[in-house]
Design a protein around this nucleic acid. Structure first.
Lengths: 226, 226
DNA sequence: GCAAAAGTGTTCAATGTACACCCATGC
DNA sequence: GCATGGGTGTACATTGAACACTTTTGC
């Protein structure tokens, strides 16, 4: 059966970060047809020598110069006409990065006009079916947040509990109760308390925490609205 | 970028049923290389005219003659050498069917030697990476069972609470407490009570229930071990 | 009348949710 | 001394978990 007419296969990566206290996603502005000038989720073709995750990592590195990030496969989209003029099936991934880690890739001949962060709750029109991909990625990210401490992937090594809470709130797009949040997150036993405090602020210094390295996947759920 | 060397794309479908009170999976015995004579998850190439779910439905129909079944995409596998001699990426699906609904497809020239049910907890060696696909499918099925009433897909229109409980137990591979199970499942409000009872049995007749059509996706979790 | 599966409630523990005030600092 | 964000505890409601006996039928 090998040998029948086939398809192109790409990976598309929904890259989230927290910037200015809001959840943002990395988009590239296309430099060519189809969808010239439209914004799109970064993606690329899969090489014969690499597996899907390696392809995703490569694309991520090309666009952002970051490695070692949280990366998870989400869903595969394959409507016959999702890509005008060709049959392209795309395997989508979610990545979480710290926005300070990022150095925008030189859009070196990649046929990209711009690359930029966009607030998730205020997006331009997107190319292809990228709006659906992004919605689904966000949905999965939220579900994941309920039972796995992925929010740490978006924060610096050391952070305050308020920063952590703001991260949860940005992803869930809902406010959380401060006392309940702290009680819960501390009870998970995945935080290491430091004897250091923030200084920069003009208010009372906040204690710094970090993520316990040997912590476990698959804890119990988190949070509710107030 | 269209036009670079590409890949084959298939769908593979992990088809579960309950038979003889145990969770079983449909496997085909391959009639040709690679992995001639090995058992494998049913699958097939995606046609240019169909989307991924349509391809999965078609393969399912070819092998089982059933339509209108529960079908859900699980994960996409794409290790470069998972398929000897070619680069084949496969999009995997889970399907749930009632084993009475099934009429085995005439293995019409499909290069299949046999097609048969196998107990999930006692499987032969499988072709390709199909063992991994199956494990992952089972894991996802279990997770899904916790917050969505998919078990109904495996039962006849009308069923007893004990049958429903046995279905849960088969999937989770663990015994559940009868009273807690009934309390929980009834509290979900997705069951319709009928004034009919089983007769065949030589014991006390059991009340029949059915699944409320207008019930909702996404309920709260279910069950624990006793 | 007995074997076998159906059916039914209560207690306790753990978790989730709502809610308000004092503390430490910079200015 | 005051404005700002940091930090803390309790009461109540909901959910989960453990557990044993009576009922109905066929034989």
């Amino acid at each position: 059966m090998i040998g029948q007419k086939t398809h192109e296969v790409t990976v598309d990566i929904v890259i989230f970060t927290i910037r200015n206290g809001s959840l943002e996603v990395l988009l590239v502005q296309r430099g060519h047809e189809p969808f010239k000038d439209r914004w799109a989720i970064p993606g690329g073709f899969i090489r014969l020598s690499e597996n899907l995750e390696e392809a995703a990592k490569r694309v991520l590195y090309e666009k952002t110069n970051v490695k070692d990030v949280y990366l998870e496969q989400i869903y595969t989209f394959g409507e016959p006409h999702r890509y005008p003029g060709a049959r392209v099936i795309t395997v989508s991934y979610v990545a979480l990065i710290r926005s300070d880690d990022l150095v925008f890739g030189s859009a070196e001949g990649l046929n990209i006009r711009q690359i930029n962060w966009h607030p998730v709750y205020d997006l331009p029109n997107l190319a292809f079916d990228h709006r659906s991909i992004l919605s689904y990625a966000l949905k999965r990210l939220r579900a994941r947040l309920e039972y796995t401490p992925i929010a740490f992937q978006l924060l610096p090594k050391k952070f305050t509990l308020t920063e952590l809470q703001r991260t949860y709130e940005s992803i869930l797009n809902q406010e959380l109760d401060k006392r309940n949040f702290r009680k819960k997150i501390v009870s998970l036993g995945i935080l290491k308390e430091h004897d250091e405090y923030t200084k920069e602020s003009s208010k009372r210094p906040a204690r710094l925490y970090s993520f316990h390295e040997h912590s476990i996947e698959g804890r119990k759920g988190l949070m509710s609205a107030q």
